[in-house]
C-alpha cells in the first residue's frame, strides 16, 4: 500500500489548487478536505463541527458518497452521513484505511485539509496514523495570504477587525515546522505555492521524483487538469464544499495567469493593520526561511 501525501498549509494557501493538481496524478487519488485529524474518533470530529456549518464535513461526505455509490447526489450524501453517524468510535486511521480500501492499494491518497495545521495535536494525529507518510509544506506569502483571508471573511460578512490573518499564518507554519523537525529528512519537503504555480512543468516532475511516482509527460499532463476531479465542483445542497469555494466554481487552471503570480516585498505596510503597521518580526523571519524576499 502506498503511503499518503499530506499537503500542509493554512487556509488560502493554494492548497485546493495544488491538492487538485497532485491528486490527478494517475498513481494518486486526490481527496477533498476530510478534516480527519480534528479528533481522536469520527465522533469527535462530528461533535466539533456546528451542525449549521457544513464547511468542515462536506468533503468527507462527498468523498464517501463518491466511493460508496459512484456519485455525489443528495441521497448518496445523506447515506454517507448515516454511515458516519453509525461509526462514531472509528479512529481517523480506520477511516483512512476504509478510504484506501475503496480507492485501491496502489494509489497514493493526497490529503490537504488546512485544519490539519491548526494545532500541533492535529498534525501529531496524522503522523500517528501514518508514520511514514510524506508531507509537502506549502507556503504562500504572508501579505497575499492575509489579504485573501480578509477578502473571504468579508464575503461571509465577518468583521475584518476581529480577524488577524497573520497570526493564523504564523501559528500554522510554526506547527508544521515543529512537526518537520521530528520527521526523517526524506518525508518532508517545503515549496512556495507561488513558485510551483508559476512554473509547474519545472516543479511537478521534482515532486513526482521525491514521491517516487511517474514523472513522465502523460502523468504531468494529467496533473495539469485538476478540473477532471469529481471533487472539483460544488457538491449537493447538504455538502456543497470540500475545497476552496472559488476553486470549486473555477477549477480550470489558467496557467498564463498563474505564471504572473507576484510576490510583494515583505517590507512595508500590511492591509489588516492600522496606521501602516508592518509584518511582525516572527512572521518576517519565518517568511525569509521560506524564501520570500
Amino acid at each position: 500500500m502506498r503511503e499518503p501525501l499530506f499537503i500542509l498549509a493554512p487556509p488560502r494557501s493554494y492548497t485546493s489548487v495544488v491538492g487538485g493538481i497532485l491528486g490527478q496524478h494517475p498513481e494518486a487519488y486526490g481527496l477533498p478536505e476530510v478534516n480527519l485529524s480534528k479528533g481522536d474518533t469520527l465522533g469527535d470530529l462530528w461533535d466539533s463541527v456546528p451542525i449549521s456549518v457544513n464547511f468542515s464535513t462536506s468533503g468527507l461526505l462527498r468523498l464517501l458518497a463518491e466511493l460508496h455509490e459512484g456519485n455525489q447526489s443528495e441521497d448518496a450524501v445523506l447515506r454517507a452521513r448515516k454511515w458516519v453517524l453509525q461509526r462514531p468510535h472509528w479512529t481517523p486511521k480506520q477511516v483512512f484505511d476504509h478510504i484506501q480500501d475503496c480507492v485501491g492499494p496502489d494509489r497514493m491518497l493526497v490529503e490537504k485539509s488546512p485544519h490539519n495545521t491548526f494545532t500541533a495535536q492535529n498534525l501529531r494525529r496524522l503522523v500517528r496514523c501514518f508514520p511514514r507518510a510524506n508531507f509537502l509544506h506549502l507556503t504562500r506569502h504572508p501579505k497575499t495570504h492575509g489579504k485573501s483571508m480578509l477578502d473571504l471573511m468579508r464575503s461571509y460578512g465577518e468583521d475584518r477587525d476581529i480577524i488577524d490573518p497573520e497570526r493564523n499564518w504564523y501559528r500554522s507554519h510554526k506547527n508544521i515546522i515543529e512537526l518537520a523537525e521530528s520527521l526523517p529528512t526524506a518525508q518532508y519537503m517545503q515549496i512556495r505555492g507561488e513558485t510551483l504555480l508559476r512554473a509547474p512543468l519545472v516543479y511537478l516532475p521534482q515532486i513526482c521524483e521525491w514521491l517516487d511516482i511517474d514523472s513522465g509527460k502523460d502523468a504531468i499532463d494529467a496533473m495539469m487538469h485538476p478540473e477532471t476531479s469529481p471533487y472539483a465542483m460544488p457538491g449537493p445542497p447538504s455538502a456543497p464544499f470540500g475545497n476552496d469555494p472559488n476553486y470549486l466554481l473555477e477549477p480550470v487552471l489558467d496557467f498564463d495567469r498563474l505564471a504572473r503570480i507576484s510576490e510583494p516585498e515583505l517590507d512595508g505596510a500590511v492591509a489588516w493593520k492600522k496606521d501602516g503597521g508592518t509584518l511582525a518580526r516572527g512572521t518576517f523571519r519565518m517568511a525569509r526561511r521560506f524564501g520570500y524576499a
Partner: peptide, 19 residues
C-alpha cells in the same frame, strides 16, 4: 543537508545524511 526543490531540479543529500 535538507532536500529541496530548485529551479535546477530536485536536490537531495547525495551522502544520504540530513543537515
Amino acid at each position: 543537508g535538507r532536500p529541496r526543490f530548485t529551479p535546477g531540479g530536485l536536490k537531495v543529500p547525495l551522502s544520504g545524511m540530513g543537515a
